[in-house]
Design a protein around this nucleic acid. Structure first.
Lengths: 165, 165
DNA sequence: GTCTATACTCGGATAGAC
DNA sequence: GTCTATCCGAGTATAGAC
């Protein structure tokens, strides 16, 4: 398979020979790794989404929190792995994690619109999709240029959408 | 190596044995493939950027043109290939192509701002970075959900930034 | 210049001792 | 339950005929 499992597999503490007692094979190991990563990602995001403050404050805090940008998004990057995308079991957590993120942010945008924090003309779903896309694309641009600043620039570029100039 | 070369290499018309007359090895083949892809991408984009119409019209036409979304961006996706990112010669065209795109779009944004088509508060560089990021991220979201509509939604989500509601 | 055959290397998986 | 040794297959590359 591609990259994800190999890296984690052979750098694990125990030798790779004994690994087959815990996992039936590479897909099972990959699934465990992906689910673990997805839970970490959603857990951290949910902590900020459900913190104190207005919807706008929480959304901006999430967008501005520090990230290991040059490593790329550990979930979004899997989209490029043919082996993962070809296996429905491996693909499902990637699909659902990103869908959850979009939905959660759409809720925040709707909440902010209702509270008068955001332009009433904003479509919550599309805006949320654009926000998640800017982050995913920010990772791509930052990696391509080996410059984490491009992630920040991409985020800064859409902030006017949220009334931040 | 990862995915790009293998796919193109073994599906080529001539047997792989004779390939070593034209290319010294896999990196050379990959470089040719990447450069060819980059030229196609910049060529198509430039054709729309330098067409007739206002800056805003040309930018919107580029954003809305049909794409093979579910295949992902043939350049941006390379960002996820460790072998490509580890080789400066292979990485360079990926870096420069995306940088060119950002620069070209920043120019259009600046032109539109000067012409009064866009909000004067827009920062051309950051806005361009956000636009390219939304496209790159749109590919990611569309692939993750196996739904090209998410690419369209991501684009639609940033259009308010360009005065399109 | 292109083909077939072959060799090398590495990731993935199994066997069996301990 | 973990280790070492070994096997298998795919991807990469070379040799040499035509």
């Amino acid at each position: 398979m591609g990259t994800s499992p190999k890296a984690i597999q052979q750098r694990a503490e125990a030798g790779q020979g004994s690994m087959y007692h815990h996992f039936s094979g590479k897909p099972a190991l990959a699934l465990a790794a992906i689910e673990r990563t997805a839970e970490e990602m959603t857990g951290r995001a949910e902590a900020q989404f459900s913190a104190a403050g207005t919807a706008k404050e929480r959304l901006l805090a999430y967008l501005r929190r520090s990230r290991d940008v040059l490593r790329g998004c550990p979930i979004g990057g899997l989209t490029q792995d043919p082996d993962i995308m070809a296996d429905p079991a491996l693909r499902a957590p990637v699909t659902s994690t990103l869908a959850w993120l979009r939905g959660r942010i759409a809720g925040l945008v709707a909440e902010g619109v209702a509270a008068g924090e955001f332009d009433a003309a904003l479509d919550p779903e599309r805006t949320a999709t654009a926000i998640v896309a800017v982050m995913q694309g920010g990772y791509v641009l930052a990696r391509a240029a080996d410059d984490a600043g491009l992630f920040e620039d991409a985020i800064a570029g859409i902030l006017p959408l949220l009334g931040e100039h």
